[in-house]
Structures are given as C-alpha cells and as structure tokens.
Computed example of a mutant assay.
Amino acid sequence: MAEHMKTELNIWLNGKTETLNSNQLSHLLPRFKAPFAVALNGCFIAANQYPNTVLKAGDQLDIVSPIAGG
C-alpha cells in the first residue's frame, strides 16, 4: 500500500539542522541569492549537477555566497 504523504528529511544546512519536504537539491536553492557555491558532505557540487543531486537524511550541505570587501 503506497502512501502519498510529503516526506520530511532532516539535513544539516550551513551548520544548523533543517527539515525539508523534498530530497531534491534544486528545490532548496531558490531560497538563496546567486551567486553561491554548494558543498555536499564536504564535496563541491558543480552547478550543472544541481538538478540531479538527491539529498539523504543526515547530509551536511553548505551553501555559501562570496563576500565583497577587503
């Protein structure tokens, strides 16, 4: 019997626990203003891989933007 419920997924996002309703990285990214870089479990993810990247419970995701200044 298949249940059609939203799946909640707990990950670490920028050092804080985050509960997501989707396991697709691309669904999370609109919250961030470009440009940014993404690392999943310490490994850089190229922008062309965002649509194919699937998150798993406990993943450590870092999304960082460059900071201007001197």
Results as ranks from 00 to 15, higher is better:
Asn23Ser: 13
Lys6Phe: 06
Leu20Tyr: 02
Glu8Ile: 13
Gly58Asn: 09
Asn10Tyr: 04
Leu29Asp: 05
Pro30Arg: 03
Trp12Arg: 11
Ala2Gly: 05
Gly15Ala: 02
Lys16Val: 00
Leu61Gly: 03
Ala68Gly: 15
Lys6Gln: 10
Asn14Arg: 09
Leu13Gly: 00
Leu25Pro: 00
Val64Met: 09
Tyr50Ser: 01
Lys33Gln: 14
Asp59Ala: 07
Asp59Glu: 05
Ala57Phe: 05
Leu40Tyr: 01
Gln24Glu: 12
Pro66Met: 02
Asn48Gly: 02
Leu28Ile: 06
Phe44Ile: 15
Val54Cys: 02
Ala57Asp: 13
Tyr50Thr: 02
Leu55Ile: 08
Thr17Asn: 07
Met1Pro: 09
Gln24Lys: 15
Gln24His: 14
Asn23Leu: 01
Phe32Ala: 01
Ala68Lys: 12
His4Trp: 06
Pro51Leu: 13
Phe44Thr: 12
Leu25Ser: 05
Gln24Asn: 11
Val38Glu: 01
Gly69His: 13
Val38Thr: 01
Arg31Gly: 04
Glu3Ser: 12
Thr53Phe: 05
Ala39Tyr: 10
Gly15Phe: 04
Ala46Lys: 15
Gly69Lys: 11
Leu40Ser: 08
Gly15Met: 08
Ala37Ser: 12
Leu61Ile: 06
Asn23Gly: 08
Asp62Gly: 03
Ile11Gly: 00
Glu18Cys: 11
Asn23Thr: 06
Gln49Pro: 01
Gly42Glu: 07
Lys33Cys: 03
Ala46Ile: 04
Leu55Cys: 04
Lys16Cys: 06
Leu61Thr: 04
Thr17Tyr: 01
Leu20Gly: 01
Trp12Gly: 00
Gly42Pro: 04
Gln60Gly: 02
Met5Glu: 12
Glu3Phe: 10
Ala46Ser: 14
Leu61Met: 06
Ser65Gly: 11
Ser22Trp: 09
Tyr50Glu: 02
Thr19Met: 02
Met1Gly: 13
Ala57Met: 11
Ala37Val: 15
Gly15Trp: 07
Asp59Ser: 06
Ile45Thr: 05
Lys33His: 09
Asn52Cys: 00
Pro35Gly: 08
Thr19Asn: 00
Ala68Trp: 06
Ala2Ser: 09
Ser22Asn: 04
Glu8Tyr: 13
Gly69Phe: 10
Met1Thr: 13
Leu29Gln: 09
Ser65Asp: 02
Ile63Met: 01
Met5Phe: 07
His4Asp: 05
Gly69Glu: 07
Leu9Cys: 06
Val38Leu: 03
Asn14Ser: 06
Asn41Tyr: 07
Cys43Ser: 13
Asn23Asp: 13
Thr7Trp: 02
Trp12Thr: 08
Asn23Met: 06
Ala57Pro: 12
Asn52Asp: 10
Ser26Lys: 14
Ser22Gly: 08
His4Phe: 08
Met1Ile: 11
Pro51Ala: 11
Pro35Ser: 05
Asn48Val: 07
Ala37Arg: 08
Asn23Glu: 09
Asp62Gln: 08
Ala37Cys: 04
Leu20Ser: 02
Ser65Lys: 14
Leu29Tyr: 08
Thr17Gly: 10
Ile45His: 01
Met5His: 10
Val38Cys: 03
His27Thr: 15
Ala39Gln: 14
Ala34Ser: 14
Ser65Met: 11
Ile63His: 07
Tyr50Arg: 03
Leu13Gln: 03
Ile45Asp: 02
Glu8Leu: 13
Asp62His: 03
Gly15Leu: 07
Thr7His: 06
Lys56Cys: 12
Asn14Ile: 05
Asn21Gly: 11
Leu29Phe: 05
Asp62Trp: 04
Gly42Ala: 05
Gly69Ser: 07
Trp12Val: 01
Asn41Gln: 11
Gln60Glu: 13
